[in-house]
Nucleic acid binder design. Structure first.
Lengths: 137, 137
DNA sequence: CAACTTTCGGAAACGGTTGTCATTATAGTC
DNA sequence: GACTATAATGACAACCGTTTCCGAAAGTTG
């Protein structure tokens, strides 16, 4: 029997590389960027595979996903616990915001209106101190 | 001198039709759907124009916009005051949630981390009572 | 090692949205 | 009412991140 500690099925070289790359930093990065980075370091992996791997990891909750206003998805290794993100819209620097309170609030609201199976999308976008300083002066 | 009560520039037949259609109901509808509806009732308007008009209306805060997980945008005439939406993921029935509290919370968090110029995206998606009853039984 | 199954990955398709640009409509001015 | 500068229109093509297709390659099992 195979070890299924992760949501992925088979233990392939490509998937290992993707997850390894995600482990390296906390930055949110797009699928395309991750693909680029792997190619740059000589790992021959297809863009399709990167997308698929990230999709699986996202479904099983092993990575966090946020969606930029532009529509592209950014991925990052997941830290434990329910939380939201405060993301710099220029450099993507991210701060994690523990947000159990928002969940409760959402659940309460939903119940009041008879809605079930609630999902919420809460992300905060802003300009971080560094980026503000650069463009400001 | 022209009347500039709205954010739109010239007062064209097409833009009047789009805004008029938005006034009719509170439903969230996509640009494509609005376009379809206008054509169906014999108003010859281009899809591009509908997109552009909605974009302007959204920028000037005259319509609310939400983004579905699929990436498509839904528009609806705006009601006054800061608020969020509880949207049924099946029928798009929407309840407005007054949410000044979330704004304050977001502002406080952002300040703590030195972020400025904050924008937040908070939408609640769920299944409304009717839709839940239909699929459940 | 052989047989079987999953995964890979290049290329093409997708779908909502935006850009292009010649044509048309609008709103001040004469 | 015409005239004219200028903004808006709209058919079509381009965009762009993402997904699908499907034959080839690699992983897994017995």
């Amino acid at each position: 029997m195979a070890e299924e500690a992760h949501g992925l099925g088979r233990h392939t070289r490509q998937r290992q590389q993707v997850t390894a790359l995600l482990e390296e930093t906390d930055e949110f990065r797009s699928a395309q960027r991750l693909h680029e980075m792997l190619r740059a370091r000589g790992v021959p992996v297809g863009l399709t595979t990167v997308y698929r791997t990230l999709q699986i990891l996202a479904e099983t909750g092993e990575v966090d996903v946020i969606r930029l206003p532009s529509g592209e998805h950014l991925y990052r290794r997941c830290s434990a616990g329910r939380h939201h993100h405060l993301v710099c819209r220029h450099c993507a620097r991210t701060v994690e915001i523990p947000g159990p309170g928002v969940d409760q609030w959402a659940g309460r609201i939903a119940l009041q209106h008879g809605y079930v199976d609630i999902a919420q999308t809460l992300e905060l976008f802003g300009t971080c101190a560094d980026c503000a300083a650069q463009s400001g002066t």
